[in-house]
Amino acid sequence: MSVLITGGTGGIGVGLAQELLARGKDVVLFDIAPQSQRLTDIKDEVKIVQGDLKVWPEMLNAVRDNNVDEIFHHGGMLSIPSDLNPWAAFQVNIMGSMHVLEAARLFGVKKFIFASTDATYGLGTGAVIDDETLQRPITMYGAGKLYIELLGRFYRRKFGLDFRSVRYCTVMRPGVKIRTLPVFMLWMVENAALGEPFECFAAENVVVPVLYYKDAVRATMQLYEAPAEQIKTVCYNLAGIKPTPTTGALEKAIKKFIPDARITYQPDPLVMEYYRTRPVSTIDDACARQEWGWKPEFTDIEKVVADFIEEVKTRGDFWGVGVDDRR
């Protein structure tokens, strides 16, 4: 039997693969555009299946042909691309996820871990959100993720699938190429580490809940390994750095390590409208802490920035860092 990871060669996907291999699991990575540079250390230990979530037979075949009994579903379109092309986002993020759930049902998959997002919260939110806060997303991306959270709960009740989900906030990691709403937090650090200037498209006082990628991987594995009887909430918030940083606080942390970092600000009105509509500054992850012992290791912004810079400088090829091919 094997574990399948959709979006398997993404930053979190590869991190999960490494953790699963260390536990003796057979791992299958399903990805529409495999990033082979990230697999150098594990290429002989994993199986790569190039496929498209929205093509149902490809998903069915991947699960059936590899005797998959557990799935981590991390594949999909990101926030800004989803808003720019909601029709494609519907096919990939909603229908594609339905394909993964149906493959799980048809072929007897036992456990299903879904990567959701704090973007499922939107209209009417205040400064603090917890697992009981009403979810009314304002983006196509958030709407799609919320639908799959609810669909997963249905599959859990109707078909006995052990569906579990984590809601990531902004995951800090190098190598992100696609512009998303909060990607300015990532690019600000990466550009500084590369000696490149960065014009931030949010104001200095914008507050962005962030989670370091190493904590994202560790939390997902903790949820995966938690005994079934401990899973009560099913879909869980995750918090990372505290206090939640502003873009200005991030700039200050960067300049502690790179004093000559060139950072300026030119706020994008659409980005600013999003953060005005959704003024979340604190994520309450008490349910994850109480039910399966979640506790982040990277809670200090300077610790995150230092490790991020080290990743860029020592594993740039792995991450594919650089500013020329962003979009």
Rank of each mutant, 00 (worst) to 15 (best):
M1H: 13
T9L: 07
G11Y: 06
I12R: 08
L16F: 04
E19Q: 15
G24T: 01
L29C: 02
I32P: 10
S36Y: 09
D41A: 03
K43C: 02
L53N: 14
K54H: 14
V55L: 12
W56G: 02
W56Y: 04
P57V: 00
L60M: 10
N61A: 14
A62R: 02
D65V: 04
N66K: 13
N66P: 14
D69G: 13
D69W: 15
I71W: 06
F72S: 15
G75E: 10
G76V: 00
I80L: 15
D83P: 09
W87M: 11
W87H: 08
A89Q: 00
M95H: 06
M95V: 08
G96Q: 05
G96C: 05
M98R: 11
V100L: 12
L101A: 03
E102W: 06
R105C: 03
V109N: 15
K111H: 14
I113N: 11
T117H: 07
G124S: 15
G124H: 13
A127F: 10
V128M: 05
I129N: 12
D130H: 10
D130V: 03
T133C: 14
R136V: 12
I138R: 10
T139W: 07
E149I: 01
L150Y: 01
L151C: 03
L151R: 04
L151Y: 00
R156F: 00
M172Q: 03
G175Q: 10
V176H: 10
P182F: 12
V183N: 15
F184V: 11
M185E: 11
N205K: 13
V207K: 15
P209M: 08
V210A: 09
L211W: 08
Y213K: 08
D215K: 05
R218G: 04
T220G: 07
T220A: 09
P227D: 09
Q230A: 11
N237D: 08
N237A: 13
L238F: 02
L238A: 05
G240W: 03
I241R: 06
K242N: 03
G248C: 05
A253N: 06
A261H: 14
T264W: 00
P267A: 10
P267N: 08
R278N: 14
T282P: 07
D284K: 13
D285R: 02
E291T: 01
W292V: 02
P296H: 05
T299W: 01
T299G: 07
D300I: 10
I301Y: 01
A306V: 00
E311W: 01
E311N: 10
K313N: 09
K313G: 05
T314G: 06
W319E: 01
W319S: 03
V321W: 02
G322P: 06
V323M: 15
D324Q: 12
D324V: 12
